[in-house]
């Protein structure tokens, strides 16, 4: 099994392991914030307006914003939004992409032409325009972002899975399964898809980054979350604060975003190296 040996190699790679732990850390913080266990009442006034960062308490670690709210709490809740957008958009796009790509690759023919046509159409609309368009007509807010990202990001998944299933469907193990009487569905879902599953993991790590970046840009443009902290909104606010020497809101939001994206980028690279045999030679 390629997956089993890959995880062995992954666990010996300290950088990748650190990145994995960073992502788990973000996920934990997001979960705890969602459960109300940390950083409750991010909108409470904790100090004067624009208090600079200080080590007096965790709340003031990154200073306060215009309304005296803790920037650190806002960063934590921004992580909650970002992680939820990444997760939900993957939960939409991966099943859709795997099923459509799998069916198209396996059955070929007219079904394949239709799926290919569908994803060619969706990918012909420049991604940022489609995202903004969907978020705009659905009326600004978190659900609109989930839908917009889900609707655009299944394309990459479907394309990869279709290609892989086409390569696999003539292999001996599939022919063997057929010869002992396995039907089409069993061949595709029980035999082929588990063997190409590692592409789903690679795509997941890419898709997550796209989702986080898109959420920040959409929120920055005012198309994203409303009435909740988001890294994008924080960066938007800090545009005008910089001239007054208030740098901590920008620094907090961009640093939080930087580390999670960096972790996903490095982990994604490592995953590709260990899971995709064609990439082996690159190392």
């Amino acid at each position: 099994m390629i997956q089993a040996t890959a995880f062995g190699r992954l666990s010996r790679d300290h950088v990748a392991l650190t990145c994995f732990l960073v992502i788990i850390g973000y996920a934990l913080v997001a979960l705890l914030a969602a459960g109300g266990l940390i950083a409750q009442s991010w909108d409470a006034e904790v100090a004067r307006s624009y208090a600079p960062p200080s080590f007096e308490s965790i709340r003031l670690m990154m200073g306060t914003d215009l309304l005296g709210r803790s920037v650190f709490y806002k960063v934590v809740h921004g992580a909650r939004i970002a992680m939820s957008v990444g997760l939900v958009s993957c939960l939409i796009s991966i099943p859709v992409g795997v099923v459509l790509g799998g069916l198209a690759g396996y059955f070929g023919g007219r079904l394949d032409s239709m799926v290919v046509w569908l994803y060619t159409v969706v990918s012909s609309v420049p991604n940022i325009l489609l995202l903004m368009g969907i978020a705009f007509v659905l009326g600004r807010g978190l659900p609109a972002i989930y839908v917009a990202l889900g609707a655009t990001s299944w394309v990459a998944m479907a394309r990869v899975i279709r290609g892989e299933v086409m390569r696999h469907k003539e292999r001996e193990y599939v022919l063997a399964a057929k010869s002992i009487g396995a039907g089409n569905w069993a061949c595709l879902f029980r035999h082929i898809l588990p063997n190409v599953f590692h592409f789903v993991i690679i795509q997941f790590s890419i898709q997550f980054v796209v989702a986080i970046r898109s959420e920040v840009v959409l929120s920055f443009l005012g198309l994203g979350v409303q009435g909740q902290p988001s890294w994008g909104i924080m960066i938007d606010d800090s545009k005008l604060e910089l001239a007054q020497g208030v740098w901590w809101q920008l620094a907090g939001a961009t640093a939080a975003m930087f580390f999670v994206i960096l972790a996903f980028n490095i982990l994604g690279d490592t995953l590709r190296d260990v899971l995709d045999p064609r990439m082996r030679s690159m190392r």
Binding site: R213, V216, V217, I235, T254, M257, F258, I261, L262, N265
Partner: peptide, 8 residues
């Protein structure tokens, strides 16, 4: 460089 947001 890839990981730093364009906004930053």
């Amino acid at each position: 460089g890839m990981s730093i947001a364009m906004l930053a």
